[in-house]
Amino acid sequence: MSTTSTKLSVSDLDASYGDHQVLHSIDMDIPAKEVTALIGPSGCGKSTYLRCLNRMHELTTAATVNGTVQLDGADIYHDDIDPVLLRRHIGMVFQKPAPFPTWSIADNVLAGLKLTGGVPDNADEIVEKALKGAALWEEVKDKLDKPGTSLSGGQQQRLCIARAITVEPDVLLMDEPCSAIDPVATARVENLIHELGENYTIVVVTHNMQQAARISDKTAFLMMGELVEFDETSKLFSNPSKQETEDYITGKFG
């Protein structure tokens, strides 16, 4: 399995909300089939950055983006690219688990297919496969018709991960996926992210440095909208090359 090829190539990326510029010319090559963590103090723009990678940022009022983001060499901000179709390639898992409240567990897994047109005949198969992929199958296989919101917070988050992989994306973006769930559930989701990294390109935003160290192959440190350092996780945490990075990971600020 290649670990050197680039999946997402970001160059000179700026992002703003109205007059307020949040990201300043970010350059970064995100490797395929690895877990890349984004860390930094709150308000540093890491969530905005993540949302630029599947063009969710532009859904916000007065939000603008400049620069290029290439997926497998093709610019996702090209005029010919429909952001809606793009998001089926680059899935997203949010901070707070958000299963659709009126839908059953199975329907939630199939949500991406149901929303965008139709559910194929082998729906049961797809549900089982995705739930196994999200390490949730054993817990829910007997209650697939129960509402998604009846699950615990951690289970709901894994359900949302299952929902995201059902549409077979190339890349999975995760915005602080463990910040709203308890420690035990966090451990399970962390394991899952680590496992999914074998087959998916994953970018995960976290405010928890230990978590970044546990689950990621590479880590990027952002501060005040700028990319300070991007390196192998082991290198960045043991021997950072920038003073700001060292100050941050040793807890001098942030």
């Binding site: 497998d72 090209h78 429909d82 793009l86 390639h89 496969k129 992929g133």
Partner: peptide
């Protein structure tokens, strides 16, 4: 981990980004 890998999708209908151009 098996099953959910993008590579193991037998008849995947997933296309490359360049295919959704336009």
């Amino acid at each position: 981990m098996d099953g959910a890998s993008p590579d193991s999708r037998s008849q995947s209908n997933r296309r490359a980004l360049s295919d959704i151009r336009g």
